[in-house]
Structure formats: C-alpha cells, structure tokens
C-alpha cells in the first residue's frame, strides 16, 4: 500500500477531457487540473503535514515488527513485575514511562503500550483502508449505474441507498458484530482475528457506500448532460466507452477527496466498535479496545487512556487535514 499522495496524480492522469470539462481551465490556461491541484497542494503546508504523518503511520504499520523489536517488547508479553501488586497499576509514575517502555505499561498485565500502539496502527489503518476501498467501489459502481442509466435502475438503487441511510448504523453494526463474535468456529473459511477484521471491514465498508453512491450519482447525472458526453455519443461511442473513458476520469477527483475524508471516519468507526467490544479479537491490539480497557483504571492511571486516544487523534486529524487540502486543491472554486 502506498501513500494516498502517490496515488493521487496517477488517479487523475485520466484523460484530456478532464481538463476541457474543468471550469478552472479558463482560469489557468495550459495546465491540467492534475498539475493545478498538485501545485496547490504543494503550497498547502498543513495538508502536506497531514500527508507526511500518514506516510509515517503507514511505515509504522508496515514495519511494526521491526520497530517493536528495536524499541519495544513483544506486544502480548506480560510484565507483572512492573505493577503495584495491590492496585495493579504501574509501579512508577506517569504510567510507567521510561527508556525501555516508551509509552508506559498497561495496568493489570504490564504489556508494553508502545508496542501495542504500533501494532494497533496496523489494525486501524488496514480496516479503514479496506473498508474505504469496499465502500468506494460499491458506491462508484452503483452511483454511476444509477446516474447513467436512470429510470427504474436509478429508482431501485436510490431507494436502496435511502433505506441503508435510514438504518441505525451503529446499532446494526454492533448486532452483526455480536452475532459474528458468537461464531467461535470458522465462517466462510475465516476464524479468529482474521474473521473479526473481515467482519469489521465488511460492516464499515458496506454501510458507508450509499454516502459515496449519492455523490457519484449526482455527479454522473450532471456529467451525463455535458457537451463532451453528447459529443462522444454522437460519434457513436458505446455506453462502456462513455462510462469508462468519459465519466470515470471526471469522477476521480470527487471520489478521491471523499475517500480521503471517509478514511478517518472509518478509523473512528473501527475504534468505536472495538471500544464496545465487538471489534477485533483479543489479544490483537486495537486502539479502540485499549481505550475500552482503560475505562476501568483511567482515574488512577490516565496514561493508558491518553496514549491510544492521542494516537487516534493524530491519525484521524492527519487524514482530515490531507482530505481538506485535497478538496481545496481539486475544487476549482477554492482559494479564490
């Protein structure tokens, strides 16, 4: 997996039509939207900061085993000797933070919080990315289908989206999560942590697609009426050609912006489900379940609550910053 930044230019490399269509082509002559966007983004230090943090987080997630080997202790190893035997909180001040345990130790079992945060980044990013890919894929396909074909197809898809949007999402997600957790055998060939992660990805991804579906449908509806589509059609282009060569490239920008903005909400969603106990299986570290564990002790050992919370904050904020930056860069009306 590469950083969204690397993806971005190629996703927009698209087609010259993208430029002819973009309203901004009037403002800056001779430059493609891609170039303009890239230029703007480069100037947006805050967004770049977000991007850098995201790249770092991805590197941390990818190289978690190496990082932990160098700077921490195995994430599931217990260190009861570092705890006060009556209260089961870290013996030393500040949650047991020292040179060897960079972010302190967990109460009750003395696990290295640093290592668990590092490994937690994996779960967090993996579920959020894959769930986003899932909802973007479904949303784009169905959104284009609905917008392009119209009629009963549009009716069916739009009503489905209405229904899904009316679902009390969290209640439903917890319900499915619980049912799957009760399954202690294999379901569809998956079990244990991989089953719980797959479930999370499915729940988060599936219920989010209508949001992107609506946007894509709306964009498709307006694009369908544009001159360049008419032109292509009058030249005898097939539906397939129009969808893939004319519409899709023009949808890339909003889809990209939206994807960047739903990743952080997906991260929070995963954390919320883990917080409520229907996320990943123990002992796989997850920031949400760390926060949930911290509830019992936060009043006497706040570090264990603060560390995963701040990790979540930084990650989510980085994605929000980048998403904002991308939107500003790609939205021709921004910054004028």
């Amino acid at each position: 997996m590469t950083a969204p930044l690397d993806v971005e230019p190629s996703a927009l490399s698209a087609d010259p039509d993208a430029v002819t269509n973009a309203e901004s082509s009037k403002a800056v002559e001779g430059r493609s939207l891609k170039q303009i966007a890239w230029m703007r983004l480069k100037r947006d230090k805050v967004a770049l900061g977000g991007a850098v943090v995201i790249v770092l987080l991805i590197l941390i997630a990818v190289f978690a085993p190496l990082i932990v080997k160098a700077l921490g202790h195995p994430p599931n190893d217990f260190h009861e000797d570092l705890l006060d035997p009556t209260l089961l909180t870290p013996k030393h001040k500040y949650g047991g933070i020292n040179g060897s345990y960079l972010l302190g130790v967990e109460p009750v079992n003395g696990r290295d919080i640093f290592s668990r945060i590092v490994y937690g980044a994996r779960i967090s990013l993996l579920t959020a990315f894959l769930a986003t890919v899932l909802s973007v894929t479904i949303g784009t396909v169905l959104g284009i289908t609905a917008g392009f074909f119209g009629g009963w197809v549009d009716g069916l898809i739009s009503r489905t989206m209405d229904i899904l949007l009316a679902f009390p999402l969290l209640v439903f997600a917890i319900s499915i999560g619980t049912v799957i957790q009760t399954a202690n055998g294999a379901v569809l060939g998956l079990s244990g942590t991989s089953l719980s992660v797959a479930t999370l990805i499915f729940i988060i991804g599936f219920f989010n697609w209508p949001y992107i579906g609506r946007i894509v449908r709306g964009q498709t509806l307006s694009l369908r009426e544009k001159e360049f589509v008419d032109a292509a059609r009058s030249l005898g282009a097939s539906n397939g050609h129009i969808i893939f060569k004319q519409l899709l490239p023009n949808l890339a920008a909003p889809v990209l912006v939206y994807s960047t903005l739903i990743i952080p909400s997906n991260i929070l969603f995963e954390a919320a489900l883990s917080f409520l106990g229907v996320g990943v299986r123990r002992p796989t570290p997850s920031w949400g379940s760390m926060l949930s564990d911290a509830v019992a002790t936060y009043s006497i050992d706040p570090i264990f609550m603060i560390v995963p919370g701040v990790a979540l904050l930084i990650t989510v904020m980085a994605f929000n910053l980048l998403g904002d930056g991308l939107r500003d860069a790609l939205d021709p009306r921004a910054g004028r």
Binding site: A272, P302, M305, L312, L313, V316
Partner: peptide, 22 residues
C-alpha cells in the same frame, strides 16, 4: 474544530471525567 471532528466521544468523555470529575 479540526481537533473536535477528529476526537471520538469515548475519548473526550474519559478525558472530561478524569479532569473535571476526578
């Protein structure tokens, strides 16, 4: 505001409790 949209309520809740209650 940016920090606000990035903070889950189960974190702000715990922080608020530990600061203002405890």
């Amino acid at each position: 505001a940016l920090a606000g949209v990035s903070l889950p309520v189960y974190f702000t809740g715990l922080v608020a409790l530990s600061v203002f209650s405890y």
